[in-house]
Design a protein around this nucleic acid. Structure first.
Lengths: 136, 136
DNA sequence: GATGATATATAGCCTATGCTATATTTAAAT
DNA sequence: ATTTAAATATAGCATAGGCTATATATCATC
């Protein structure tokens, strides 16, 4: 059977959390490139609300995991994989906000909560959300 | 105005995350006490899917923050504050699962996703969920 | 009441994310 | 071309959560 105990559920949530920061940074870098042509570490730090060395460290992780590229003292760019991830994250974010609004959550609150919720929404839930939104 | 920029949103999500583990442990300890009369560290560790020293460390944090009490080599208990938190968390969990199911997410998936989602659902969203569920 | 099994605690390590302070590089301005 | 300002990198520290290995305490049993 589909034996999924509580320990597995928590393990899943922990895993989702470890991916969450990557997703946030990748999406944000995508935004900055779209808006400004490039993503500077200083801008990333400001938008993420962290100190600049924290952003630098995050970028190092993104590079290590193949989502971004950069050269010292230069802007940050997304790999193909990074860009694809950014697009997926962006779409999921929109869907989550739309669903929250659809069930009566005020727009502003929906944006706030979605930032945390989205990372825990599985593909299956996302599909359900989309169908629900269509059938309205 | 209600000036809430993206950095604030991420800060909020980070804060929610730091509270999440506390909530999970407190809820689980509440469950164990309800089921078995007391919460042993070994049982907590098993259900959380972590090693026993990890659970011990978590309990130390709960004690430090006033949610639990325990004496060496004895079971763990909740303070009044801890019990109240456990009840709130449990209720929120039920509501989140119910909402997911209501918008078409399969029961099993809803349980899985709720474990991560619930910690990011604000009071306002929760209220909206409840109203939505009633109005069905 | 001594002994062996079980449960809990402690020590020590790792990784991730945050920070401040400071060095280094790039870019701008005189 | 120097000098200065701004951006980025690096060093070093803290906390949180995870782990394994091991010490210590409790409990059950003989």
């Amino acid at each position: 059977m589909t034996e999924v105990d509580q320990a597995d559920r928590f393990a899943r949530a922990r895993e989702a959390q470890s991916v969450a920061l990557i997703e946030d940074y990748v999406e944000m870098i995508g935004d900055l490139i779209a808006e400004l042509g490039e993503a500077r570490v200083a801008d990333i730090a400001e938008r993420m609300g962290v100190a600049q060395p924290t952003a630098t460290k995050a970028v190092a992780r993104l590079k290590r995991e193949g989502f971004a590229t950069s050269r010292p003292y230069r802007g940050v760019f997304l790999t193909e994989e990074g860009a694809a991830l950014a697009e997926r994250v962006r779409a999921r974010h929109r869907t989550v906000v739309a669903l929250l609004v659809a069930v009566g959550v005020p727009e502003e609150v929906a944006e706030l909560d979605a930032e945390g919720i989205e990372h825990h929404v599985s593909e299956q839930s996302l599909k359900a959300f989309e169908q629900f939104l269509q059938g309205k």
